[in-house]
């Protein structure tokens, strides 16, 4: 409901954003697609040739790729399980009438604001170092040998760090969803004699189900691109143990200077993310109706 004038003005005003985003999306994508069909190494930049799908077949049949794909999935799924389950528990706890609720909320949300490189380094050194880290001291105090985290359990270490970063996000969003559960419903359930478990299963879980979906989808988008944490802790190692797809592409491009191969990897990452995005956009889009 508007006049031709406002409609025209609207088009003009939205145009810069649309053009910028379109360029930002399309130009790199087209270039990546183009590069992915070339034999193109920065070490030998004058010798560029068209190789068709060879980069893809090379990338897809490379055992490193399968490892990276596997690592990516392990990382994403583990962190999702930990942060969502943990997030539900934390949110339920914070939703109780406890003393000092506001301060608690601040403490719980804090890790989300920490720069990823900071969290990774703090965990790697101050907490997980096998000689002087706090965990080593706890293990020794309890009479165990300290865990040599990044050597023996590299993937687990990365998972722990990333989960710590994302647990607050899940907690905060689920808490917000929980708090919109109205008091009357709670009281009705208690009058109906619902025990805590059936109360949770029949009332709480359905109520926060959509928030959980949103958390899962948004976290997936970010977790598919975990990079900085690996970059500063394990550099993808030992061996390929913590190399995920973003890190593999980075290695291929900026460490091995293989532009063609890295581009093929980039396209594969885009396809993976799009599968997730497809579902996310639909869910959020449905929400727009309301």
């Amino acid at each position: 409901m508007a006049t031709q004038q406002t409609t025209t003005a609207g088009r003009v005003l939205v145009a810069p954003s649309v053009i910028l985003l379109f360029v930002w999306m399309i130009v790199p994508l087209v270039m990546t697609l183009y590069f992915s069909s070339l034999r193109y190494s920065l070490l030998d930049p004058d010798n560029v040739s068209f190789v068709g799908l060879q980069n893809y077949t090379a990338f897809l049949t490379d055992p490193d790729f399968l490892t990276a794909l596997y690592n990516t999935l392990v990382l994403v799924i583990s962190v999702l399980i930990i942060s969502v389950c943990g997030g539900i528990l934390v949110a339920l706890l914070m939703d109780q009438p406890v003393f000092g609720q506001n301060v608690l909320r601040l403490m719980v949300i804090a890790p989300f604001f920490v720069i990823p490189t900071v969290s990774a380094l703090v965990w790697k050194n101050l907490l997980m170092n096998p000689d002087s880290g706090l965990f080593a001291w706890i293990a020794r105090s309890l009479g165990f040998d300290p865990i040599v985290w990044f050597t023996n359990w590299p993937m687990l270490s990365v998972i722990v760090i990333v989960s710590w970063e994302w647990l607050p996000f899940a907690s905060l969003i689920l808490l917000t969803a929980l708090q919109s559960l109205d008091e009357e419903q709670k009281e009705a359930a208690s009058l109906d004699g619902a025990g805590p478990i059936s109360y949770f299963g029949y009332i709480v879980l359905p109520h926060i189900a959509r928030a959980i979906t949103v958390v899962i989808l948004i976290e997936t988008i970010f977790l598919l691109s975990v990079f900085a944490e690996i970059y500063v802790t394990t550099a993808g190692g030992p061996g390929n143990a913590t190399t995920n797809i973003p890190f593999l592409v980075y290695k291929q491009a900026l460490l091995n200077f293989d532009i063609g191969g890295a581009s093929a990897g980039g396209i594969i990452a885009v396809i993976l993310a799009n599968i997730v995005a497809f579902f996310l956009v639909r869910i959020i889009g449905r929400n727009l109706e309301g």
Partner: peptide, 19 residues
Amino acid sequence: LLMWMLSTKMMPAVGALVP
């Protein structure tokens, strides 16, 4: 348009790193 803008946010950065 809004949904499209949202979807650009979901392009993984590695896809654009090389170019």
